[in-house]
């Protein structure tokens, strides 16, 4: 029988060459997929997200996810970006996929900022229901509470707390307002310098209003103003609303004309172009007239 050996050797050589080529291509591809500046690609992904180019955003986040070391900061950031984009993309967000991605972040980076933001995102998905439905408020509140309890010192934790209180007050019942007020008192005591402290005071004022505690409503409004953050670059954001709101509560709910006068006047002085200045002027005249009348009667 004729030996088939040369043919076998040829086959083996061909296989080896193929494997070698495959290995070289694999290495080249791997090198290619490695992302050199992941931070820049992530930033580009978010820019695409902001511009509404969700497919592009997903592509960029995915590129980073595949091209950086496992569980690196960049990979976690890319996972979070992918989660947000899948959740909020148009048309038709994919909540299931987003939840998977957020859970992956929570699993891979426990205790990190992105863990907190991902946990908050999962609750936000639960809270935001179609326009003709009402959120399952008790469940939503519980979930916000869990985020706050897990991250009491992180911004995401404080934001979750604020959303939770909002979910109590949106229900518009006295019972819920009582719970909200109690939780707010504890929060304000524990975190007097929270970045969300002004919002917390604003919610406190709202809770007092529902409970009929008018002085509490005014006091909380004053605290809200004291701690208020103003975005200096936003020409529509100023204290005129806050001044007007304090003055009106002081005048019509508490009868504290001194405070009312102070804030009506502040608005007129600091915002001379504010259209409610005429109303403020009327209010000053109204209070003067009432006091004069009452003095005359006495």
């Amino acid at each position: 029988m004729k030996s088939n050996r040369p043919f076998q050797i040829l086959i083996i050589v061909l296989i080896l060459i193929t494997v070698a080529f495959a290995a070289v291509f694999f290495l080249i591809e791997k090198k290619k997929s490695k992302v050199e500046k992941p931070a820049e690609v992530i930033a580009a992904g978010w820019l695409q997200f902001k511009m509404g180019e969700y497919k592009q955003a997903i592509k960029l986040f995915q590129k980073v996810l595949d091209g950086v070391p496992e569980n690196s900061d960049e990979q976690i950031q890319a996972l979070y970006g992918l989660g947000c984009t899948n959740w909020l993309k148009l048309p038709g967000g994919d909540k299931e996929k987003a939840a998977e991605l957020f859970n992956e972040v929570i699993k891979r980076a426990p205790g990190s900022d992105y863990d907190a933001w991902s946990m908050l995102a999962l609750v936000r998905m639960l809270h935001m229901v179609p326009a003709d439905q009402t959120p399952d408020y008790p469940k939503v509140r519980d979930e916000y509470q869990k985020v706050y309890e897990k991250f009491p010192d992180k911004i995401a934790g404080h934001e979750a707390f604020i959303y939770m209180i909002g979910a109590y007050l949106a229900a518009f019942t006295k019972e819920d307002a009582v719970i909200a007020k109690k939780k707010l008192d504890e929060f304000l005591k524990a975190h007097p310098d929270s970045p969300f402290v002004s919002s917390a005071w604003g919610l406190c004022s709202r809770a007092c209003e529902t409970l009929g505690d008018k002085q509490g409503q005014l006091d909380a409004k004053l605290k809200e103003l004291e701690k208020r953050e103003i975005d200096p670059a936003n020409p529509f954001m100023d204290n005129a609303n806050a001044y007007w709101s304090i003055a009106v509560v002081a005048e019509f709910e508490v009868g504290d004309f001194e405070t009312a006068r102070k804030y009506y006047k502040l608005m007129m002085k600091e915002y001379p172009m504010e259209r409610r200045n005429f109303g403020a002027m009327r209010a000053l005249e109204r209070m003067d007239a009432l006091e004069a009348k009452l003095k005359a009667e006495n």
């Binding site: 934001e159 604020i162 959303y163 209180i165 909002g166 979910a167 007050l169 949106a170 970045p195 969300f196 002004s198 919002s199 604003g202 919610l203 709202r206 953050e229 103003i230 975005d231 670059a233 936003n234 954001m237």
Partner: peptide
């Protein structure tokens, strides 16, 4: 600051 103020105005207080 922008984030927190807009979260307050556009989401939390808006829903209330």
């Amino acid at each position: 600051i922008k984030y927190r103020t807009q979260t307050r105005d556009r989401q939390v207080f808006y829903e209330i």
